[in-house]
Amino acid sequence: MTGIAMTTFIDIVLFSMLVATAIAIVRMRSLFAVVMLAGVFSLLSALLLVTLDAVDVAFTEAAVGAGISTVLMLGTLALTSRSELASRPAGLTPLLVVIVTGAALVYGTLDMPNFGDPNAPASTHVAPDYIAQSPAEIGVPNIVTAILASYRGYDTLGETGVVFTAGIGVLLLISGLRRRRREEGDEE
């Protein structure tokens, strides 16, 4: 068994667990269970990311997906409702949409390079330069950090800005700062 076939085997095992979790999420009525399964889904995908050599990403996914996002979703459930109402039967339309979209995507993968191909376009353009140059130019062992903070510093500045903006948005929507101030003003 070559290395890539072994990886594929592990991937398939993790995948069946991921798909089982996703299908359970589709079928569950209790939103509490749905949120917990979403946490399980995140942890499983973090495992899969480790097999794909993306340790930094796996780390982030485990901390964010299973930690913060579960807490926030539970907070939302406490403010809204606990279970999903039985809605109209979905019918065949969503299934049809999903199958057509999926088929189009599969068609799109047919001319993609093989998984793990070292000569894939994605791995031959700038990435080898980053790996070859970063010891001399940046001198930081973790290449991901070197690219994140130095080569693509503008990019990360923008992402930080997006996180900041989303935080301000949440504060404006539900923090009730203005309402509280107005109530205090009424009392005076």
Binding site: L72, L79, V170, L171, L173, I174, G176
Partner: peptide
């Protein structure tokens, strides 16, 4: 901040 906003409701 997001956690505070949710928890304060």
């Amino acid at each position: 901040a997001i956690y505070y906003a949710f928890a304060a409701r």
